[in-house]
């Protein structure tokens, strides 16, 4: 059998040490870290392309009816949107600080920063919940629900026969008359913020998982890949919102 010629181990002396966190198929911790980091970047690229589809749809329909979008966007609460932007930006900062303290081996500070990040994420979702329920009660849920306050009229068998209608919304003392066509804006609003919301939830589960691992003492200044990667993911969640906010709340 003409096989393995040469010894890889000769070139990788640290291979023999095999720290406990090194998976068997990697040769060195550096290789494992590079692989994980690259993996997360590639995954982020796929996420951006997934949102990209919705951004393209938004740009196309906005270009078709800019006035309609401008009219419809007044139904969104700019103040709550801005508040959420600040909350997410701050959480991105604390996520970065968590990575920094993990790198320095300060376990308790890492946990504290992770908890703050999680609290911000929860605050974001609470604000989002109030925004959503307000829209649903105003009959701004898109599709067959449009123009029908609540879910009752448009889900299930009864929903199949329901047609979208024009809506009047009271917002900031201003009466907005939205035609049926304004459904497009809200379809995009709910799809984009909904998909983003799902990402917030996924990010929160990741951060919670990392928090538990951190409390159990899985990380060290040599090995904190999971903290680093979940923070990276959290920055993506933040970044997407940075684009969503002006597109949806500040239509000009």
């Amino acid at each position: 059998m003409a096989t393995e010629t040469g010894h890889a181990s000769a070139e990788h002396p640290e291979h023999q040490e095999h720290p406990h966190f090194l998976q068997h198929h990697f040769e060195t911790p550096a290789q494992q870290y590079d692989a994980s980091k690259l993996g997360m970047w590639v995954f982020i690229a796929t996420e951006i392309l997934m949102f990209g589809g919705l951004f393209v749809a938004y740009l196309i329909y906005h270009a078709q009816e800019p006035e309609l979008f401008k009219l419809a966007h007044h139904a969104l609460d700019k103040k709550l949107g801005a508040l959420n932007t600040v909350v997410l930006l701050f959480s991105s900062l604390t996520a970065a600080l968590a990575v920094r303290s993990a790198q320095l081996g300060k376990r308790n500070r890492t946990s504290a920063f992770l908890v703050v990040t999680l609290l911000c994420a929860a605050a974001f979702l609470v604000v989002k919940y109030f925004e959503y329920s307000h829209k649903i009660h105003a009959g701004l849920l898109p599709g067959r629900c449009f123009g029908h306050p609540g879910f009752a009229n448009c889900i299930g068998d009864a929903g199949l026969a329901t047609q979208p209608l024009a809506v009047s919304v009271q917002e900031h003392g201003m009466l907005l008359q939205l035609p049926t066509r304004a459904n497009m804006f809200f379809a995009l609003y709910f799809m984009m913020t909904g998909l983003h919301g799902v990402h917030v939830l996924v990010g929160m589960s990741l951060l919670t998982w990392v928090l538990i691992k951190n409390i159990k003492g899985h990380f060290s200044p040599e090995y904190f890949t999971h903290v680093d990667l979940s923070a990276l993911y959290w920055h993506l969640v933040d970044l997407v919102w940075i684009y969503l906010f002006p597109l949806l709340y500040l239509v000009s």
Partner: peptide
């Protein structure tokens, strides 16, 4: 990922009548 979002929109279209691809709603 673009296919994922496309079929997700298609599912929404079928379940809620979302309207993004529906000419009657400006899609």
């Amino acid at each position: 990922p673009v296919l994922a979002i496309t079929v997700a929109l298609l599912m929404m279209e079928r379940v809620f009548g979302l309207g993004i691809f529906n000419p009657k709603l400006g899609g």
